[in-house]
Amino acid sequence: MSRKLIRDEDPGEYFVGYLDAPKVDRRYLLGLSVLGLGIAGGAGALLAKKQGGAGQGSWDMATQVTLSGYLSETPYPLLRTTGLDGSMQTVLLACDTKCGAQEKLAAASVAGDRVNVRGSLIQRGRHVMMAVANEDDWISADQTLPARLTGFDEEDLGMVELNGEILDSKCWFGAMRPNEGAGHKACAMLCIAGGLAPYFYARDRLGRSRAMMITDPEGHALVQPILRYVADPVRVTGRVHRIEDLLQLRLDPADLTRV
């Protein structure tokens, strides 16, 4: 016809869903299925392959260990124990969900700072955390440890300006993978608000990185003022302070800026 009024399509077979499908549609479904399997398999593989690393660390929930050492409740609950090589090893203490061990310590009321603690270990390189056991006897006094007559070895390493990201220690140590970035932001905020130590994960242009516990300028816990910066790329000026093997980044929240 002079004016093209009818759509170009094969009028031979007409699909009606509740009737037997025409042969051409059955063949088409078969072809589309095979094509779909190929595309789905390929797309799944490509999307998987291009992902960045999920981060290191692990949480061996199945193995309970007992550690002896010196308990400190500030700035965040931690235990200082001795490693196999005789050096001091800091082990942060957490509950088994999104909270620090503050409440469990308050309920335990152990006398003195020489204790045994039991739980499962979350480890990322030299960073160690213990998710303490749920039983009431997760902590006990240990009088076999020698009393400390002197303080811990401390050192002021000076002022630094760093670029990086504020993370929660538990997830970053290995409780979750991936444990950085926008996808993990809300989780990290819940964890830090729950009492888990915030960490600053600093990275330089050469790809070198270092994670440090965040405290206020006096070395006390710092939580609420930094929550809104969690998991954002930030720049900060602060003072690095070492206590035994633990690095603290002592900062004023006013010195945090997003980059």
Binding site: G36, L37, A40, G41, G42, A43, G44, A45, L47, A48, K49, Q51
Partner: peptide, 10 residues
Amino acid sequence: AFIASFVIMT
């Protein structure tokens, strides 16, 4: 196929 491929390849 998509889910299996993604999980295995990851």
